[in-house]
């Protein structure tokens, strides 16, 4: 969106006055900001959910087959090496200029963190606990769902927080295929030297990262009440 040529009386964004902090911009362009934020949130949430959905079976597979483990970890590290501005274009021949391209790219990035932390979480369950569960007659599926996964939750949730926060940041690069949420506003702001727009997008994107991180922290506390006494800090 280009800057208006003539400044209105109370306005702090126009070709004449171009302020970073500008309340009337937030007010006038509320719809633009809301739509970009919602798109950002949607892309982030779907990507991390998709990443988690793929990471759980991959981590279980890697645990069962040690030979596959180095292959899975190696491949996901390799993916993480590819810059985001290159990864999205590399997916375009398969998924086109769509939101799917961004979601798949971001899900692949989150896999790197999630597979590792799920593996680490499962390995953090002590053998004594497994042994006693087995002694109580737990089969392998019931053990996984009833004992191992709940005990792995603190580590897994820590990984999920890291993955979510970095996905919020990376979503901005989706603007290369026109689906970058607040990144679209950043790109537009640079093209038009629109300072109020740039500042607003920066503030919202950082706030979004902190808000989602806080939500996940609260969720973790609620899901793992037994850790509350130990990890007060």
């Amino acid at each position: 969106m280009t800057l208006p040529t003539v400044g209105q009386d109370a306005s702090c964004y126009s070709l004449v006055v171009n302020h970073w902090v500008c309340a009337s911009y937030w007010h006038d362009r509320f719809d633009t900001l809301r739509d970009a934020t919602l798109q950002h949130l949607e892309i982030t949430a779907v990507s991390v959910a998709l990443g988690l959905l793929c990471a759980v079976p991959l981590a279980l597979l890697a645990r069962r087959l040690p030979r596959l483990q180095s292959l899975i970890l190696g491949a996901s590290t390799m993916l993480y090496t590819i810059p985001s501005l290159a990864l999205f274009p590399l997916l375009v021949p398969f998924t086109g200029i769509t939101e799917t391209t961004v979601v798949i790219g971001l899900a692949l990035y989150s896999l790197t963190i999630l597979v590792r932390t799920i593996l680490a979480g499962l390995q953090s369950v002590s053998d004594d606990v497994r042994e006693s569960a087995r002694g109580m007659g737990y089969g392998s599926t019931r053990m996984l769902v009833g004992v191992e996964l709940p005990l792995a939750l603190p580590v897994v949730m820590a990984g999920l927080r890291v993955a979510t926060v970095s996905t919020v940041a990376l979503t901005t690069i989706g603007t290369i295929v026109d689906y970058g949420g607040l990144g679209n506003l950043l790109y537009d702001g640079v093209q038009n030297d629109f300072k109020a727009e740039i500042f607003a997008a920066c503030v919202i994107v950082v706030a979004l990262a902190f808000a989602l991180d806080a939500c996940l922290l609260v969720a973790q506390r609620l899901m793992t009440p037994w850790t509350r006494g130990r990890t007060a800090g």
Partner: peptide
């Protein structure tokens, strides 16, 4: 470092 989008930082520094 992970929470701050590199894109946003680049934009702020170059326009600013």
């Amino acid at each position: 470092g992970r929470a701050v989008p590199t894109f946003a930082a680049l934009v702020l520094l170059s326009v600013g």
